[in-house]
């Protein structure tokens, strides 16, 4: 998010690179660090027990601008956070002879659960105030503790299971459904029933096949996508936090991009916060709520049509996540 600061901040970009990673002293394979995606996959098959990962950092600051600017007492600080565990740790980088800023930060296993976020902030004294933020990386690094490959895009997990006799007891009542969307957790999950329609899951997983099979595949995928969008939308608006004055707060995680994308179709021509207020009002009071259903259905259908496939839909959510915030 771009803030407006009441003092002069850096105009030129600040960049952070994770040069290498060691886990309990052993190097993490290079393949698990993606510079282009700014993502690190920390999970290594067969190694679930580890204590700490150390990230070697290198930062590029706009030195020329700093040299002529009004700031003093510059501090270049790496900030590692994760909302789920309320974890926050910081490390200072120092300027090397090569002109870059170097340092390292430790990620302690016990303090992180899923995805940690690594940012770089530059602070300085300006106008007599110390510790002012004068620059930061545009895009944080993402450290995924559960992934083996460093991919930013978070896919909606699709769990193929037998609703009738599988291990998930709670799916029993849905044994006649083709799929179920669960949106209560950090990431929505689609459960695909392997026994409701014989052969469907095989067709879904197949890449080629006859034109008929392709059609079934696309249609089913698009229907699942529509269900996912509808479920995500309803979940996102049902858990709105309210400010003191009753204004709904834009939710975090996947809920935010979903609302940003769908609200313009559900309540066209309104600002996000206004639309959010309106939708919360209608939902809680019940008046005007039934009328909205058509628009919600339309908005969900539009996403699932435009994107055709579930994975694409998810990719869209993710790219919104990155660009929209």
């Amino acid at each position: 998010m771009k803030h407006v600061f009441p003092y002069q901040t850096l105009f030129d970009p600040v960049d952070l690179e994770v040069v290498s990673v060691t886990v309990d002293g052993r190097s993490l394979p290079y393949m698990q660090i993606s510079k282009s995606e700014r993502t690190i996959a920390l999970h290594q098959t067969g190694r679930t027990e580890w204590d700490a990962a150390t990230l070697q950092l290198k930062a590029t600051l706009p030195e020329q601008e700093i040299a002529v600017g009004p700031w003093s007492d510059l501090v270049c600080l790496a900030v590692l956070t994760e909302n789920a565990t309320n974890a926050r740790s910081t490390a200072r980088l120092s300027k090397g002879r090569d002109g870059y800023w170097h340092g390292q930060i430790e990620l302690v296993h016990g303090r992180h659960l899923n995805r940690a976020s690594l940012a770089l902030a530059v602070t300085g004294e300006i106008g007599g105030v110390q510790g002012r933020i004068i620059g930061a990386t545009d895009k944080d690094w993402c450290i995924d503790l559960k992934a083996v490959t460093p991919k930013r895009q978070r896919e909606i997990p699709i769990v193929e299971t037998d609703f009738r006799e599988g291990p998930e007891e709670w799916l029993r009542p849905f044994k006649d459904s083709l799929w179920i969307v669960e949106t209560v957790n950090d990431i929505p999950v689609v459960y695909l029933n392997t026994t409701a329609v014989e052969g469907l899951v095989e067709i879904m997983n197949d890449k080629g096949g006859s034109p008929g099979e392709k059609l079934v595949r696309d249609m089913t995928a698009s229907q699942i996508a529509q269900d996912v969008w509808t479920a995500m939308f309803h979940t996102a608006i049902s858990e709105l936090d309210l400010d003191d004055d009753g204004t709904p707060v834009v939710p975090s995680g996947w809920r935010e991009p979903v609302l940003r994308m769908m609200l313009p179709d559900v309540l066209p021509g309104r600002q996000l916060t206004d639309a959010l207020f309106e939708i919360n009002e209608r939902r809680t009071s019940g008046s005007g709520w039934p009328e909205l259903q058509t628009n919600i259905q339309y908005a969900a259908g539009k996403r699932s049509q435009v994107t055709k496939k579930l994975t694409n839909a998810v990719r869209m959510v993710d790219s919104m996540d990155r660009n929209g915030s």
Binding site: Y7, V75, L77, V79, R88, T123, Q130, G131, R132, I133
Partner: peptide, 9 residues
């Protein structure tokens, strides 16, 4: 906290 970093101070 949106313009200051307490960790630095």
């Amino acid at each position: 906290g949106s313009t200051l970093i307490f960790d630095v101070l």
